[in-house]
Amino acid sequence: MRFIDARCQLGRRCVIRENEPVTKAEILELMDRCRIERAVAYHAIAKEGDVKAGNMELLKDTEGDSRFLRQWVALPHTFGEFMSVEELLKGMKENSVSSIRMFPKTHGYSLKPYALGKFMDAMAEHKIPVFMTYNELASEDALYAMLTDYPKVNFIISDVSYREERKLFPILEHCPNFHIGTGNYVVHGGVKTMCEYFGAERMIFDTGLPTGSAAAAVSLICFAEISEEEKTLIASGNLERMLSEVEL
């Protein structure tokens, strides 16, 4: 089975743990060992430091490397500190960037339409998927508000933990644009339950490398009591379909 990781971070973090993979070579070695063919990657500097500089670092780090699918971190255009929507789309097209990741809590901005409406309209129009970790949202209600404010944007919310089902399932029912990254979704029988109630189409394989365990993430899918077709969708099919729909 082919795996494509929807969440991988390149570059050295400010604080690293012992034995954490840091270099691109170490990440690739882990991907090889876990049979992960490719990975959607953003840069640590774009999260922890200067967003634009981090996005540029990503381009340098992934130059000529087809195993990484480039993902840029985005900010609102407030005070001109980030690209305008038009500049962002142009930059993405020129540099083969096919998805966006956002850190509203870490980077300190609003997700409401008065602040991000124009940006999200562009994501919807160009079918660009938007990735976020669950802890970047203030609450499950904030997640619901975002999904309903922008119903035409596909969101992939990752790093949900094992205790979130009661909060997330009603949102999955109401919001077809909500997809869950499987990394750290380690509730007992969770992948199977999710497939049963909402379909495998709503799950996207990710590892959270370098902080998450790639082996655990792969095993979560490999050993799930679901069909081979469902595993294939989760492991690579859903993400590939989503990225193939991007129009830049």
């Binding site: 900010l75 609102p76 407030t78 005070f79 500190e81 980077h107 300190g108 901005y109 609003s110 008065y114 602040a115 991000l116």
Partner: peptide, 10 residues
């Protein structure tokens, strides 16, 4: 600033 800017705009 990232919070205030959009409110000032709107």
């Amino acid at each position: 600033n990232r919070w205030l800017g959009p409110v000032l705009d709107a």
